[in-house]
Amino acid sequence: MRMELIQPFINAADAVLCESLQSPTKIADVTMDDEAYRRKGVAAMIHIVGDIEGRVIFDLDTATAVKIAGFFSGGPVEATDDLVKDTVCELANQVIGNAITTLNDQGMHFRVSPPVLHTAETGGKSSEDTEALVMCFDTPNGRVYMNISVRYHRRRRTEKVVTA
């Protein structure tokens, strides 16, 4: 996987989590994953189509999602509360929005779908071409996971080879 595609997502997640939670975060772990995606808790998925294609899953274990939703609502929140799901979707939206702003400024054009809740326990298995990078962020409210599987669109990859 190309690091120039991944770095904007890492920077955006770090910035959004720091700013939203008003406290520092750190990357606890980074792994490559070619196994089927296994959901940790409350997860939102965003699809990317264009010069870059793929998907990003933003995943919080349930206790962390509840704590963060409670932090923003100013009171206790139940795990079943819609606000918990909405919080995860909006955080995903902000991370991906900031990342694609950076990639767009670098001349790449694509569309993203609004975040949707990823409710399946597992996702599709990655291939050599679509292996996923899994990042784990430590926050004061618990762990936040981001699973990124993106690549250049075939046409753009061909253009890059031709112009190289």
């Binding site: 939203s20 923003f72 609502s73 606000l83 909405d86 919080t87 979707c89 909006e90 955080l91 939206n93």
Partner: peptide, 11 residues
Amino acid sequence: DSVFARKNLAK
């Protein structure tokens, strides 16, 4: 469309 975002701005 996000309740979370509205609450955050309201605060």
